[in-house]
């Protein structure tokens, strides 16, 4: 099962890197979300397989129990129950990922409004190139020095 998860992580992270390296900012935004999925799945997989070990498995139950204590969880041992801690971490991550998504989408709108383009190279080049020309003209002269 973990191997399947590893494949999912590979697919999500790989595609997200492909998108992040692209020229379109919208693709970059999608890449960020996909990267979040990949990271969450990776943490999930690290908690181990949800399949019950063969000696504990019954005909009715082949999976470990959800981390909710109750009548059907006789003892809070992780042999029979999935690890709750990665779930807690991922829950936090999902919510923060959502906040980042909202922020990022807003940034897209703002960027588009102020520059009229969402092509990464163009966005990157224009402002930086102007500052660089400025630096070249007088690299070390302190500002405010009368000439």
């Amino acid at each position: 099962m973990t191997f399947v998860m590893a494949l999912c992580v590979t697919a999500c992270v790989g595609v997200s890197i492909y998108l992040l390296l692209g020229r379109d900012l919208k693709g970059v935004a999608m890449g960020v979300f996909l990267l979040g999925h990949g990271a969450n799945l990776s943490i999930m997989a690290m908690s181990g397989s949800p399949v019950l070990p063969a000696e504990n498995a019954t005909a009715a139950e082949s999976l470990k129990a959800a981390p909710i204590l109750g009548a059907h969880v006789p003892s809070p041992a992780l042999a029979n129950m999935v690890d709750p801690l990665p779930q807690a971490l991922i829950l936090t991550a999902i919510v923060i990922g959502f906040a980042v998504m909202g922020f990022l989408l807003t940034l897209l709108i703002i960027t588009n409004r102020s520059t009229g383009t969402l092509v990464v190279d163009r966005l990157a080049n224009e402002p930086v190139s102007t500052t660089r020309t400025d630096t070249r003209a007088e690299p070390f002269l302190p500002s405010g020095t009368p000439s």
Binding site: L7, G14, G38, M46, A77, L78, L85
Partner: peptide, 26 residues
Amino acid sequence: VGLAFGWITLVCAHAQPEALLGEWFS
């Protein structure tokens, strides 16, 4: 990069720690 992350996932999942924090929490 994707393969590397998948591989890291496998390596981490395969580790057998002495104790799991989750045990204490539950």
